[in-house]
Every structure is written in structure tokens, then in C-alpha cells.
Design a protein around this nucleic acid. Structure first.
Length: 491
RNA sequence: CGGGGUAUAGCACAGUCCGGUUAGUGUACCUGCUUUGGGAGCAGGGGGUCGCAGGUUCAAAUCCUGCUACCCCGACCA
């Protein structure tokens, strides 16, 4: 056995760790908290990027790029923002190294101290709004709809591959609008884009909602989120979209002249998803045999493994396979024919299962005789013998079925793990024994939320957007409540 | 940042307590033959600054000090 995973039931976080490494997605690097994203993992990220980028452009956004470094003074202009990020910023203080004459080692040159220290961006609001000041004068310059693909650094105490790393890749959208309503609409438009992407491409059901004050982005008026439920019953915030009001416009003095000729501050939004989505993707679908990828994000959608005794047999199989490959490619399906002779079929089966390839075809002497091929599904681990006639249409349909199937499975899991709770005892018991989302009344105060967190570690994941209003009593304080909110343990 | 653990061949580990031949096993790799429908078998072979830097000693993977990285549990956070 070359590779085996720790079973999920035994140690979920070890399983995750094993899987990320054994499926060749990423590994830890020589730099604390920073990972190396390996080609197979990066290929999945590229597929995510391509689709998200398409969706952003479809909704009128354009890409640009802003600097990695932010002058310290910019950073401190928005009070809530500084407070939120100050504790996890990497700071550049010098710009040169030199050879130390005594120790013969490379040291920081004390003469090369920067006049003003630079922050490595943990997010780019400040540098971007400082720039927008020069770009915006008139209502005719609005809206400004810009996205950037970038890396950011947040100096985390404790890191986990993809889920929380000191450096990560993401996109951050930063938009400027003439009216409050337009900015709010933008914020909601984007959270809908994120939800659509998560559900249609990642096959991961999400709940759209509003963050409570405690969980809000530093500097935002409102934070919208998509929350997903992982297989261990913990919630994962998978994307956020912020309505920033005029906070950054005021901090950076970004004004425009409206149609009536009066000066006003602009209204802002920002929004992002990161390589954390990779972690979400892994934990949403995979099993004890390895990764399970939704076809729409799988770098290889179909792998074909030949089974043969003699080289002549491989030749005959290859001819048949070449036809299948051509047909699948013509349909836009990515396919790999693994005819390498240094690995046995059984080894290949296990390997492609570990890597989550959605469909595997195996063709051997029996298939040659019967005009068939063996088709195996990664998601259900089922196999069947299928006639070669019409195989590409069959696989095309199967890929759609798998995409839908893993979404349904995840949705079913989530539905079973949302528990409606009305008493504090029930709340604690559900959290301990079952996990998942707890749907309970809350009195709307930060004080109660903090007490609940202190006692149980559970936080309010969100106030769902399509929430029905319902009078009730807060599960903790007993005070009146207008609606239920979702609680849960979070990553 | 606090508590605990780990670091020896590409990978997974033993050896460390109690210092002493040439540092070992599995797997992977190379060669050959037999194999090939779920991680093949036999035979032969190559591969090691024992995490890094100091120290103790006739002698250090082993003892001492410092450093670094990773894992687990907390605190913090996306």
C-alpha cells in the first residue's frame, strides 16, 4: 500500500491533511504558514478562477492590479479596519541586505531603513481607495467596477493547508457607486454570483446570509456571506461581500459631483473568495478513498486505463481508445489515456480515485471481444459494462449526472444537519452530539452572541437572507426575537 | 503566543532511554525474468552532511544548549 488515508471517522482533520497531500494538491513549505500549491491543486484553482472571472466580467467588472505594499499611514485611516487587521500584518522595514564583515553572513543593512514602513497587504481597500480618489470626480465616473486577482498575507497563529494560510490567493472586488442603494444592490449581486458558483460548479450548497456585528468585516456596514457545511458538521465561510457605506470614501476623501452639482462621498463595496474554496471543495465531497471532484472543476474528467497482457494487445486497445478520446475531446471533455507501462491497472485505479477523477474507463481483452468498456464512477464507486456504441454521449450524460449527484448528496447532508432548536439545553446537546447548523432564536445583541460563544464556541454563522420572520424567544436570554438565525462551530 | 509531540534514504518508520562494528526495515527507484480485470512476485543493485548550529567525549543519530520547521490541543482569526 503506497498511499492510505486516515479514515474520516477516526480523525477528520488528519484525513483532510492526508488527502490534500496525497491527492497532490499542496504541501507545506519551508516558510512558516505558507504552502506550495502543486500543479494538480493549482489546475483546480485555475478552473475556479476561469469561471469566476467569466462571471465577474459578465456582470460588468474589469480586472486591474494594485501593489502588494501599502504605506503604513494609509492603513491607519479607517479606524475599524486597522483594529481588525493590525494584529496580523507583515511589515517591511528595510530595503537592503549586506554582508556582515565579522560574521560573513547576510544581514539587514541598518542604513537601509525605510522612511515609512510598508505593510504587506492583508486586503487592499486602503491602497485602492487612495487611488480611486484620483479617478473619481463626477457621477459620470461611476460606477467603478474593478476586481483584482492577487495574493495577500495575514500572519496567522495557526495554519492549515488551504483553509488558513499566512499567504493566500484570492480575488478582491472593489466598487464605487453614486448611491447607497446601488452599492447595496452590488453587494447582493455578488453574493448571488458566489452562491451560484458554489452550487453549480463546486456542487456545494451554501446558505446566503448576513453576518452579525461581531463577525462583520473590519470597516463594513454589512457583510453578506455564503456558508457551507462540511462533512464533520462544522461551518465554513466560503465567500463574503461587504457593503462599506461611505466609510472608506470618508477616510480617503473620495467625493464626486452629482447631477445636481453637489459634492457627495461615494458608496463602496468589496468582496472576495480565496483558495480557501479549495479546502471547502475537498471537505464537501471527498471520502476515505480520496478526493471526489465535481466534473465541472476536475482537471481530468475521464481517465482511461488499458488492461493487457502483451504489447500487441495494448496496440489494439490503443486504437479503440484513440477513437473514444477523439470523440470526448470533440465534446469538450478533458480525458487522459494512461497507457504508461510502469504501473499496474490496480495501482492506477487507486491513484485516480485518490485524485478524484470523476469517471474511469477500463478496457481489456474481454471488452475487445464484446465491444464494451468498463465505466466506473468516482462519486458512487459503482462500475458497469457499457457498449462502445454511443459511449461519448453516455459519458457526457454521466458527467452531468455526477455533477448533480454530488450536489444532491451534499444538500441532503446539509438538510439533515440543520436542527431547529428552542431551548438552551437542546442547543448545547445538539452542538455536542450532532453538530451542523442550529436554527434558533436570538435576541439580536452582541452580548448574547458573545456569551453563547464563550460557553459553547458556537458563533452565529449568518442571518439567512430568505429567512421567514417569526416571533419567538431567544434560546439563550429568553428575550423577544423576530427571527431564527444559524449557529454553528466554524473553521 | 501557551501546553504536548515529531524531525534518520523520495515517502513511512525502527534505532536514541543505557554513547562504541560499515545506521537498519518497508515502500519507491534502477537491472533482469515472470506478471497485468483493484495498489504484482522473485533475484540483484544504487541512494544517508541522522532538521540546523554549537558544546561534552578517545568516540555522538544517541548526552547538553540554542535555533528552525511541521503536527495535535488551546487562545486569535477568513
Amino acid at each position: 500500500m503506497a498511499k492510505e488515508l486516515t479514515p474520516r471517522s477516526e480523525n477528520y482533520s488528519q484525513w483532510y491533511q492526508d488527502l490534500v497531500i496525497k491527492a497532490d494538491l499542496a504541501e507545506n513549505s519551508a516558510v512558516r504558514g505558507c504552502m506550495v500549491i502543486k500543479p494538480y491543486g493549482y489546475a483546480i484553482w485555475e478552473k475556479m478562477q476561469a469561471e469566476l472571472d467569466r462571471m465577474f466580467k459578465e456582470t460588468g467588472h474589469v480586472n486591474a492590479y494594485f501593489p502588494l505594499f501599502i504605506p503604513k499611514s494609509f492603513f491607519s485611516k479607517e479606524a475599524a479596519h486597522v483594529e481588525g487587521f493590525a494584529k496580523e500584518c507583515a511589515v517591511v522595514t528595510h530595503y537592503r541586505l549586506k554582508n556582515d564583515e565579522e560574521s560573513k553572513e547576510i544581514v539587514v543593512d541598518p542604513d537601509a531603513k525605510l522612511e515609512e514602513e510598508l505593510i504587506v497587504r492583508p486586503t487592499s481597500e486602503t491602497i485602492i481607495w487612495n487611488t480611486y480618489r484620483n479617478w473619481i470626480q463626477s457621477h459620470r465616473d461611476l460606477p467603478l467596477l474593478i476586481n483584482q486577482w492577487a495574493n495577500v498575507v495575514r500572519w496567522e497563529m495557526r495554519t492549515r493547508l488551504f483553509l488558513r494560510t499566512a499567504e493566500f490567493l484570492w480575488q478582491e472586488g472593489h466598487t464605487a457607486h453614486a448611491t447607497k442603494q446601488e452599492a447595496i444592490d452590488e453587494t447582493i449581486k455578488i453574493i448571488n454570483v458566489y452562491a451560484e458558483f458554489a452550487e453549480n460548479f463546486m456542487a456545494m450548497p451554501v446558505i446566503k446570509g448576513l453576518k452579525s456585528e461581531n463577525e462583520r468585516f473590519a470597516g463594513a456596514i454589512d457583510t453578506y456571506t455564503i456558508e457551507a457545511l462540511m462533512q464533520d458538521g462544522k461551518a465554513l465561510q466560503s465567500g463574503t461581500s461587504h457593503f462599506l457605506g461611505q466609510n472608506f470614501a470618508k477616510a480617503f476623501d473620495v467625493k464626486f459631483t452629482n447631477k445636481e452639482g453637489r459634492e457627495e462621498y461615494v458608496w463602496a463595496t468589496s468582496w472576495g473568495v480565496s483558495t480557501r474554496l479549495m479546502g471547502a471543495l475537498v471537505m464537501a465531497h471527498s471520502d476515505d478513498n480520496g478526493l471526489v471532484l465535481p466534473p465541472k472543476l476536475a482537471p481530468i474528467q475521464v481517465v482511461i486505463v488499458p488492461i493487457y497482457k502483451k504489447m500487441e494487445q495494448l496496440g489494439v486497445i490503443s486504437e479503440k481508445v484513440d477513437t473514444i478520446v477523439a470523440e470526448l475531446k470533440a465534446k469538450g471533455i478533458s480525458v487522459k489515456f494512461d497507457d504508461s507501462d510502469n504501473k499496474k491497472p490496480g495501482w492506477k485505479f487507486a491513484e485516480y480515485e485518490m485524485k478524484g477523477v470523476p469517471v474511469r474507463l477500463a478496457m481489456g481483452p474481454r471488452d475487445l471481444e464484446n465491444g464494451t468498456v468498463e465505466v466506473a464512477r468516482r462519486d458512487t464507486l459503482s462500475k458497469e459494462i457499457v457498449p462502445l456504441e454511443g459511449i461519448s454521449e453516455y459519458i457526457e450524460r454521466l458527467l452531468e449526472e455526477i455533477q448533480q449527484g454530488i450536489f444532491n448528496k451534499a444538500l441532503d447532508f446539509r438538510t439533515k444537519n440543520i436542527t431547529k432548536v428552542d431551548t438552551w439545553n437542546e442547543f448545547k446537546e445538539t452542538l455536542n452530539k450532532k453538530g451542523g447548523f442550529i436554527w434558533a432564536h436570538w435576541d439580536g445583541t452582541s452580548e448574547t452572541e458573545e456569551k453563547i460563544k464563550a460557553e459553547t464556541k458556537a458563533t452565529i454563522r449568518c442571518l439567512p437572507l430568505d429567512n421567514e420572520q417569526e416571533e419567538g424567544a431567544c434560546v439563550y436570554s429568553g428575550k423577544p426575537s423576530k427571527q431564527r438565525v444559524l449557529f454553528g462551530l466554524a473553521y
